[in-house]
Simulated scan of single mutants.
Amino acid sequence: MTQATYVRTDTIPLAQLTPFPGNAKRGDVGAILTSLARNGQYRSLVVRQVEPDRYVVLAGNHTTQAIAAHGPGDCGMTVKVGDEERPCGVCGNEPWEPVARCEVVTCDDDTAKRVNLVDNRAADLGTYDDQALAELIAGLDDLGGTGWTDEDLGDLLTAIEEAAAEEEPPEEEQPATTAPAATPGAQDTTGTSPA
């Protein structure tokens, strides 16, 4: 067994990329394509070179599918960012052949399976800090390209409110407190002198 070893970063035509055989994860290709159109390809695929012009995608299989779903050429789509219309982050609204930015690694078959499995599984194992997530989402002008919807934000805020209500202790009658009576002969520490 060998560890995955980084070789280079390269832009590789989709025609040279093969999905990982038996990839068990089923991702939301539509959400990924929406993100790519808005944000561009912000993360590289991880691929293993198996022949001079053939690579197997270890991590990023659904990103590969989303780029393929976009297809070649100018899609004509623009995205609204604030008040500005911007070109599609995949094709730039220009003639384009489907390519992906890739991190090329070398490894054996066993390590390739492990990389694919952990890439898919690690996202399932994490949790969210709901308050931090709500603040991140609510801080955006729109949710385009985030994978989140206004309905998701509403559900999240409701869950936060319900959790806070469960954590609040019941209000109990607290006895009124009064200042202790001055002890005769005690030194005045308030900084005022008697009149």
Rank of each mutant, 00 (worst) to 15 (best):
L117I: 08
D74C: 13
I12W: 09
H70Y: 11
L153K: 05
G144R: 13
C107K: 03
A164I: 03
T2F: 13
A134M: 07
V115M: 09
D83Y: 08
L153Y: 05
G82K: 04
P19N: 07
R48P: 00
A122L: 13
E135T: 13
N39E: 14
P13T: 06
V99G: 01
K113V: 09
I160V: 05
W96K: 03
A31H: 03
G144E: 15
Y6Q: 07
T63M: 11
N61P: 06
C88K: 10
L133H: 01
E151H: 05
V47R: 06
N23F: 02
P19I: 08
L133A: 04
A68S: 12
R38A: 10
E173H: 04
Q16W: 14
Y42N: 10
V81S: 00
D28L: 06
T64Y: 06
G30V: 03
G185L: 07
D152R: 04
A165E: 15
Q187V: 15
L143C: 08
C88D: 05
P194Y: 08
Q16R: 14
R43S: 14
R121F: 09
S44Y: 13
E173S: 01
Q131I: 14
G185C: 05
D188G: 02
T18K: 09
L156Q: 06
A68G: 04
L156V: 07
F20Y: 15
Y55W: 13
A37D: 02
N120E: 14
I32E: 03
L140Y: 10
E84K: 09
G126F: 05
A24L: 12
P95S: 13
G126R: 11
N61F: 09
L156K: 00
E162S: 07
Q49K: 15
T127H: 05
G191S: 02
T34N: 14
L153R: 01
D124G: 02
Q131D: 11
G139C: 08
D142S: 15
I12L: 14
R26L: 08
L140R: 13
P72G: 14
P170N: 04
W96L: 04
T183I: 15
T9E: 14
G147I: 01
H70F: 13
D130Q: 11
L125I: 02
D110I: 06
Y6S: 11
R114C: 07
